[in-house]
Design a protein around this nucleic acid. Sequence first.
DNA 1: TGCCGTGATCTGTGATCACACTTAGGCTGG
DNA 2: CCAGCCTAAGTGTGATCACAGATCACGGCA
Lengths: 249, 249
Amino acid sequence: MERRDLHGRDLPGAEAGQPDPDGVARLAPLARITLGTQVYDALRDLLIAGELAPGERLSLRTVAERLGTSMMPAREAVSRLVADEALEVLPNRAVRVPVITLTKFRELTRVRIAVEGFAAAEAARPPGPDELAAIRAHDAAFRHEVRAPEPDLERAMRANRDLHFAVYAAAGLPSLIAIIEGLWLRIGPVLNLDMRSSPRRLAEGGAEAHHARLVVALAAGDPDGARAALAADIAGSAAFIETTGRLAP
Amino acid sequence: MERRDLHGRDLPGAEAGQPDPDGVARLAPLARITLGTQVYDALRDLLIAGELAPGERLSLRTVAERLGTSMMPAREAVSRLVADEALEVLPNRAVRVPVITLTKFRELTRVRIAVEGFAAAEAARPPGPDELAAIRAHDAAFRHEVRAPEPDLERAMRANRDLHFAVYAAAGLPSLIAIIEGLWLRIGPVLNLDMRSSPRRLAEGGAEAHHARLVVALAAGDPDGARAALAADIAGSAAFIETTGRLAP
DNA sequence: TGCCGTGATCTGTGATCACACTTAGGCTGG
DNA sequence: CCAGCCTAAGTGTGATCACAGATCACGGCA
């Protein structure tokens, strides 16, 4: 779903099998992967997966030691996450994952509906055949996981995420994807934490139906339908989160 | 326009005049302003103002020395700006202002129209009286500056920026403002650099007329009208930039 | 018993040093 | 005269040290 998700550098393609005419020409420039970036990705995954609860405090030294590096890469990673508002520094200089208030959550939801809805609409005019195929695959994976007698929450949420970002990728606007990733980074903790606490609700929110409508609209090249379906999906999960009442006032 | 723009800490309000009953109670917590943040703000202003040309290279040591700090705050500032995609590190580890390609510019423009257009629509339902007054003031300042016999480019662009962000602030969605600031940070260099090279074009782009329509729509509580006016404004200035042909293919 | 000073400990911030790597310029050898 | 290497200056990255400020628990005073 994301440009750094492979957690490694681009394969230089130097398999050294049979010699390749102008093989060097197809060498991609090595992806710069610094320690700071690796720490950033690690913390980022923890946040999106909801493994860091809102309000939980972080320590640069602890993070550094846990990941086997010095304090410097941890510093860079944390300061980047603070810039993304995925972490915050209290006036005491303490670093923690932000506690989202109810009003802030609603605000983020409105912004998500606008931005992600726009992305879905753009994806619908029209998506390429392989993009549509990828979307359908993630949709099927999500449906299969949710309908299973023993649903694997982890896989279901990943399928949901992959489905969403496959749609956004089909919009062909990379800068929009970066924006959406920033939004997910901020709602990830509350969203996935609550989901984790009550797994079966995953199926009840109507996500399955929304996804189905979304795929149909995309395949039909119907921007407004795609936007509406995605907005309903977001609104549905947001409403569920609000019912859990775990948000600060 | 922005939460850090004052470049200083909140006045503690301790004037030590006549004693104030529970005066300590009204002390606001001091705003945390680190050196790294100050460097970040300084570079940020340079970028938005177009004083750093696309392709221009930066050196941590140079920045640090110029601002009278050690290398550390410069590192933090630059890494944050890289995270915002307002700067980029080449595979050579060199840091420079990104050169925007024509396709990238068009993509950013489409995203801007969607996001900022949404903000304008939200601002129109309806803006508070003082918000509307602020918007009108910035609009008047811009018009006055553009119509002057000897237009001050600097002031005109600042009035334009203040007008836009006053509208976005009226939408009441802080996270949306942060997103838009990130977008402006990336188009700032190309936009303001080209504007600077041909000052008089400022008046020709029709910005004045678009602003007028925008203000009317906002006052009338007409979301669609506001969105359309703002979209036309963005599209107009983008079209002008493209005609200068300074963008990389 | 309740409260406030006080110490050790831990926090983020900034400075400084070490290192691998890139780049540009001058020199040498043809 | 030109191509080649090769040194020297400059780059970002990472580690380590120093320090002011915050936190928390213990112990003594009221």
